Amino acid sequence: LTVEVTLDGRRIELHGLSEEAHEILRHALERNADDKEIKKILEELRK
């Protein structure tokens, strides 16, 4: 799955996400998580 997010003013596409990762990010974006929170989530998903 692919998600497009804006971090530090740049639009980035995240490819190859699992369903779980996609859901976690989608929920964070829906509640307008800040860049710091999104980065933390991405860091966790990379593990």
Rank of each mutant, 00 (worst) to 15 (best):
L7P: 02
E23V: 08
L17Q: 01
R26I: 13
R31P: 01
E13W: 14
R46E: 14
R46Q: 14
K47E: 09
L45F: 08
D34N: 12
L14A: 03
A28M: 09
V3F: 15
K36H: 14
K39W: 12
E37D: 06
D8P: 01
E44S: 09
A21I: 06
V3I: 15
E30A: 11
L29A: 04
N32T: 05
E30S: 10
E23S: 13
L45Y: 06
H22W: 15
E4L: 14
D8Q: 04
E37A: 07
I41F: 04
L17V: 04
R10A: 10
E20H: 11
L1C: 01
L1G: 08
L29Q: 06
E44D: 11
K36A: 14
T6R: 03
H15Q: 08
K39G: 08
D8N: 09
R46P: 05
L25F: 04
L7E: 04
R11Q: 11
S18W: 04
E4S: 13
E13D: 07
D34I: 05
E4F: 14
I38L: 12
A28E: 01
L25H: 00
T6K: 04
K36S: 14
E23N: 13
T2D: 05
R46Y: 15
G9A: 02
L25P: 00
H27R: 15
E20S: 11
K40W: 12
R11M: 05
L17C: 07
L17G: 01
V5E: 02
V5M: 06
S18Y: 02
L1T: 07
A21Y: 07
H22A: 15
S18V: 02
A33H: 03
A21C: 06
S18I: 02
H22C: 14
T6C: 14
I12R: 02
E19Y: 14
I38E: 00
E37K: 03
N32A: 06
R10F: 15
D35V: 09
I24D: 02
A28I: 05
N32K: 12
R11C: 12
T6M: 14
K40S: 12
R11Y: 11
R11S: 06
R10M: 15
E13K: 13
I41M: 05
L45A: 05
G16E: 05
S18P: 06
D8C: 14
E43I: 09
I24T: 07
E44I: 11
H15W: 10
S18A: 04
K47P: 11
D35N: 09
K47T: 13
E30W: 05
R26V: 13
E20F: 08
H27N: 12
E37S: 05
E30I: 05
I12A: 02
I12K: 03
T6Y: 13
E30L: 11
E37I: 08
S18E: 04
L29K: 05
D34F: 04
L1A: 08
R26W: 07
L7S: 03
E23F: 10
E44L: 11
R10H: 12
G16I: 04
V5R: 01
L1N: 08
A33S: 04
L1F: 15
E4C: 14
E30D: 12
R26M: 14
K47C: 15
R10L: 15
R31C: 11
I24F: 07
G9F: 02
H27K: 14
I12E: 06
D34S: 10
I24C: 12
V3P: 03
A33M: 05
T2S: 11
N32E: 09
I12W: 13
S18R: 03
V5C: 07
E30G: 07
V5G: 02
I12V: 13
K47Q: 13
R11H: 12
A28T: 02
E44V: 09
L17K: 00
A21F: 09
N32V: 05
L1Y: 15
E13L: 14
L7R: 01
K39H: 11
V5L: 15
G16V: 04
L14W: 04
V5S: 02
L29T: 04
G16N: 12
E44W: 14
I12Q: 07
L42P: 00
R31V: 06
A33D: 03
I12N: 03
V3E: 04
E4N: 07
I12L: 07
R11K: 13
L45T: 03
E44R: 09
L7H: 03
T6Q: 08
E13P: 05
L7D: 03
E13F: 14
E37T: 09
L42C: 03
D34V: 05
A28W: 06
E44N: 09
V3C: 07
L7M: 09
T2A: 07
L17Y: 04
V5W: 02
E4D: 05
V3L: 13
K40G: 11
L17A: 01
E23R: 15
L14D: 01
N32S: 07
A28Q: 01
R10N: 14
K40E: 12
L14E: 02
A21P: 00
A21R: 02
L17I: 05
R26A: 07
I38M: 10
L1W: 14
L45K: 01
V3M: 15
A28Y: 05
D34W: 03
A21T: 05
R26L: 13
T6P: 02
I24Y: 08
E19D: 10
H22M: 14
I41D: 00
L45G: 02
E43K: 10
E30P: 00
R46S: 09
D34Q: 06
K40F: 11
R31W: 05
V5Q: 02
G16D: 09
L7Y: 04
K36C: 06
V5D: 03
R11I: 14
I41Y: 02
L29R: 02
H15R: 11
L29G: 02
R31M: 11
D34E: 10
R11L: 14
N32Q: 11
L14M: 05
L45P: 00
L42Q: 00
E30Q: 10
T2I: 12
K47D: 13
V3A: 06
L25Y: 02
R46C: 11
I38P: 00
R11T: 14
T2F: 09
L17T: 00
I38R: 01
L45S: 02
H22V: 15
E4M: 12
E44F: 11
H22I: 15
E37H: 05
A33Q: 04
H22P: 01
H22R: 10
K40Y: 12
K39V: 09
R46V: 14
A21K: 03
L29C: 05
R10C: 15
T2V: 12
E30M: 09
N32F: 10
A33N: 03
T2Q: 07
L14G: 01
R11V: 15
L14Q: 01
H15Y: 11
A33G: 04
V3Y: 09
E43G: 08
R10Q: 15
I12F: 11
L7V: 10
L45C: 04
E19R: 08
